[in-house]
Nucleic acid binder design. Structure first.
Lengths: 112, 112
DNA sequence: GCGTCTTGCTACATATTATGTAGCATATTG
DNA sequence: CAATATGCTACATAATATGTAGCAAGACGC
């Protein structure tokens, strides 16, 4: 029972339904996006410092992600201060705080 | 030679530091991974039902993600029941619950 | 037995996306 | 004037995803 198979895909990737959660999951599911948000959790970084923090991700994709996140209102570029989270971005990052603790438990259970 | 998707991967991408959070962020940052976890929040789905739920993602990458998530101990395949979250997977999904509410606020602020 | 479902999963050619290296224009410092 | 750092881009190569097709194994009714 396929629903809407073959319909247009001109909306945000991964969000044919238009439900915001789908658009958000898709945005966060692109390479380096979650990592970027994470690395900015304690303060702003210049684009190059951010690249270094993200295992030397290529500048091409890094700029793409930064533009996307800026357009999404989660990041902003302050002159002389580099990239930092907006209030909305900080709010989103709050939801990821439990992730670190989970990651610790997860790595122990998986490696066994 | 492209790396075989879905096969064992001893060094997790994006985690040179070995910090679990980096491995987790990288795993969740692959295409369709977050979406898969999300779509299974209310119960198990067969691989094909899951593909339909995920905007008809290609079976190739879907199987790759399912294998990765199984290897990560977040998903399991139950005979006759399809794919479902493990206890660990359910635990992880708990941390994403606030995301839906955030997504609603986010979409309103961004569209303006 | 047969045929028709559905399941998880794979092959393969094509399209999309990321990498790595180099470089640009602008600004700031000495 | 260098010398340095910023944000950002070009471009060829490598890695990933897509879309279509199909496989083998079960379960169902006949």
């Amino acid at each position: 029972m396929p629903k809407q198979a073959g319909t247009a895909k001109k909306t945000v990737r991964g969000s044919r339904t238009g439900r915001p959660i789908m658009a958000l999951l898709d945005l966060l599911g692109r390479r380096w996006t979650l990592r970027i948000m994470w690395e900015l959790r304690e303060g702003s970084l210049t684009s190059r410092a951010l690249r270094m923090a993200c295992d030397e991700a290529s500048p091409t994709v890094m700029q793409a992600r930064l533009s996307e996140l800026r357009e999404a209102g989660l990041l902003e570029l302050a002159q002389g201060d580099g990239y930092g989270l907006t209030e909305l971005g900080k709010e989103l990052n709050q939801t990821f705080i439990p992730l670190q603790r989970f990651a610790e438990r997860w790595s122990k259970q998986v490696s066994s």
